[in-house]
Nucleic acid binder design. Sequence first.
DNA 1: TACATTTACATAAGTGCTTATATAAATACA
DNA 2: TGTATTTATATAAGCACTTATGTAAATGTA
Lengths: 317, 317
Amino acid sequence: MDALRGFGELGLGSRLKRVSEFVMKETQIVYDHFNIDFDPYLFPIFKIISNKDGVTNSEIQNSLQFSQPAITQALNKLNNKGLIIYKTDKEDKRKKIIYLSNKGQITLETLKPLWINIDKVIKEYTLESSSSLIEHLNALENKLNKKSFSKTIIDNIKMEVVQEIKIINYKNEYAKDFYKLNVEWLKTFFVVEPYDEEVLSKPETYIVNKGGHIFFAKLNNEIVGTVALMPIGNEGLFELTKMAVSPNHRGFKIGQKLMQYCIDFAKNEMKLPKLILYSNTKLENAIYIYRKYGFIEIPIQENSPYKRSDIKMELVF
Amino acid sequence: MDALRGFGELGLGSRLKRVSEFVMKETQIVYDHFNIDFDPYLFPIFKIISNKDGVTNSEIQNSLQFSQPAITQALNKLNNKGLIIYKTDKEDKRKKIIYLSNKGQITLETLKPLWINIDKVIKEYTLESSSSLIEHLNALENKLNKKSFSKTIIDNIKMEVVQEIKIINYKNEYAKDFYKLNVEWLKTFFVVEPYDEEVLSKPETYIVNKGGHIFFAKLNNEIVGTVALMPIGNEGLFELTKMAVSPNHRGFKIGQKLMQYCIDFAKNEMKLPKLILYSNTKLENAIYIYRKYGFIEIPIQENSPYKRSDIKMELVF
DNA sequence: TACATTTACATAAGTGCTTATATAAATACA
DNA sequence: TGTATTTATATAAGCACTTATGTAAATGTA
């Protein structure tokens, strides 16, 4: 079937190229999956720039052994993406010294955990003793065919993220995160009504001071998700609401982690008999999750508190 | 220095690409050195065509896992070089069945010994046990930096060729080779005079029947070089002359092999006391070789037999 | 048997490299 | 101190691929 493999050492050149292209393409999938505007071929140059505090085109060329125009072209790409800035050397006006821009710094921080995991997975695929390079390439290609490289990396990263997520209580300093996350979410699916504005901008007044609770999912000092338990009326009825996850961090099951925490808290700490929530049937995924955690649909009253809600659910402990 | 190496497994993609490109480029040098109009990237496709008796574009694509346009484009290149021919399938008129052309067959035969040696040298560079792919690439790149890959292959091939060269006696069937090789050589450096034409087209009359000898260097059924011992006058004086090597086979020391054989023959078989030769001082390399084999410059007579000669040399046994 | 789908190959345009060459500043040298 | 050489970077064009799409023949299906 695979002729190239049959050629043995003779096809080494084409073989290396094929594996290289495969690895690059899979890495691209990883970057794309996490919505990072970055290309695998830019990695060596970007890494060098981030390692040193100011480098020139020719310095990069020396450490990479690519052609000088290749460096210039890649730098143009990085510049177009806004990841680097140029400063002309004062001593030697031919030189352009290259630094990471602010956006570059931020991208670097997002890339770092990916790189750690890419490195880890490549090691997983390639740390194996063999008696020849071709044999090694055979083993690697076998593994790549058997188990998706990009998926393995993505799963690793997600697992890591999930482990690092901490659920924490409301503090004043998180008020703006609470607002931002919820407004972002509302804008995506509905419209932000005046009452939303009011509640979301004063969470302390409307939720915490009324005996409610707000929780946050924190990942490396960044608030990436939130949820609230808000009292309804005066009979000890609580609503699970204001759940939102940062768009850059969807797919990590952060919402489910928040929900689990919320349910446990309501049941064990607050000793509530039940929880209710309002949602909309067009949010199929959300409703699926609610059901998964035991919520059951109940009749919705005529004048429900939210215009956008057309379904009411209940979880009895 | 080498940043890419410093990145470890993380830079695997770029790393593989770099090594691939290096190997390809070095292989190109080998093909160029032997004046073969062929590119390393065409190898996989050309090899598949030569292995099977008639293949289609899509069959090649299946066995190589390249994109279909990549195959079409490479086939166009092979077709432009005249190495393949297309025949439309009679059953299915969409299909173009691909065969090697006559030229393709010949090129294949010239390539085969190169491929054997390329394979051998790559094995030499890569048959080494290591515990990870990166480690293996490190070892390979170290070797590639230390010892020229292309030169090693070329040297291997030359050695093999030299071993396969046989020096044989004159036969009628070689008359045309004798003519062709000498005229080719004369045209390069001088002009072919009427007397040359006469002697070269009738070697039997002018050399063999007069007690002279003609020797040929034969490589795989091909005559690639010649030299003659021609009598001068009637006093048993012999001239080493008509030495020529095929342009495609220069650099294999075929000339030296012919010369050594000639000298040994003159000394041991013909029991000659000495040999003379005429040459031209502008042929510096030739004269260097003559000196190396013991020829010493002697005064040249006024009316030397060749207009083009300005130096006469002698080897006394 | 007609028409939609699939298959085989070709073409077009884009990408990340390459080599060759241009441009402008710095340095060497007479 | 002026001019040639070297150095740093940019631009242009080519190359071996890619993806997207086109074209024509064969096949499946109603």
